[in-house]
Write a protein that binds this DNA or RNA. Structure first.
Length: 257
DNA sequence: ATGCCTATTATTAATAGA
């Protein structure tokens, strides 16, 4: 089974690129982030025609997450992260697909730090930590997949010293990510490639793609039962070089069936 | 320290992203 994550940066503007990649990569499950579209503008019919059922949690202009399933309809289990009824951002959706519980997330960026956006990111991370522990306690196969907006280590940054004060790399978020993993999750891409510099995002600014000035932001956290099934995983880097590409590239893993 | 580039929304400029 092939599971992918892709921050599309606008589901409608990016639809030709997304459909082109789906046709080539043929993932069984896809977690999408940054739909930047309200629920009634989600391209359900186009994705259905491409062979994918979907569950989505949209929002006008910003955020928005979705789960796609090839030849199936994801069984929605949750929309929105718990423990803050006043959180209006669409950043979490969860569904059961093929016997796996999939949590698709778009963690807040948090810049500028310090400030209210930074505080929101830290609170969101705390809520995720609490909820992730609940998911592990269910003792079912679970994957928490998406754009964490965190580079976990210096190996995940093209030039770490430039990012030390940034909300994506400050010690607090690196520690939060580490503490989350320590609950018993496996960072799948890092597990498969322990010493390799791997990026999933290249800024539109400063010719970042041309200079390979990238960041690793998109992660798969696997529960123990799924970690045992992990076979391979890569970044579909070439997609970042396509016309009208997102600033993120798709990332995927394969599990034994 | 800031803009760079891109997408969205609303209407040609503002906001957010990372």
């Amino acid at each position: 089974m092939k599971i992918a994550t892709y921050n599309v940066n606008g589901i409608n503007g990016r639809l030709p690129v997304l459909l082109r990649w789906l046709k080539i990569a043929k993932p069984d499950i896809v977690c999408l982030q940054e739909l930047k579209a309200p629920d009634d503008r989600f391209p359900r019919k186009e994705l259905q025609a491409a062979g994918y059922g979907a569950a989505w949690h949209g929002q006008r202009s910003w955020n928005g997450v979705a789960i796609l399933a090839r030849g199936a309809t994801p069984v929605l289990t949750r929309r929105g992260l718990p423990y803050d009824p006043d959180d209006s951002h669409s950043r979490y959706i969860e569904a059961a697909v093929n016997g796996i519980l999939i949590g698709c997330l778009y963690l807040p960026n948090g810049n500028p730090a310090p400030g209210p956006k930074w505080e929101y990111k830290l609170r969101w991370f705390e809520r995720l930590h609490e909820y992730a522990a609940e998911l592990l306690a269910l003792d079912v196969p679970v994957a928490l997949v998406g754009d964490y907006n965190v580079m976990p280590t210096e190996l995940d940054v093209y030039k770490p010293e430039r990012w030390v004060d940034d909300a994506l790399f400050r010690p607090e978020v690196r520690e939060a990510f580490h503490a989350l993993v320590q609950q018993g999750w496996t960072d799948a891409i890092r597990k498969l490639h322990p010493d390799e510099q791997i990026f999933t995002f290249w800024d539109y600014f400063r010719n970042a793609w041309g200079r390979n000035a990238g960041l690793r932001l998109d992660h798969f956290l696997l529960s123990p039962a799924l970690a045992e099934r992990l076979q391979i995983g890569e970044v579909d880097k070439q997609v970042r070089g396509w016309e009208h590409a997102s600033d993120h590239a798709p990332v995927w893993i394969e599990l034994t069936d």
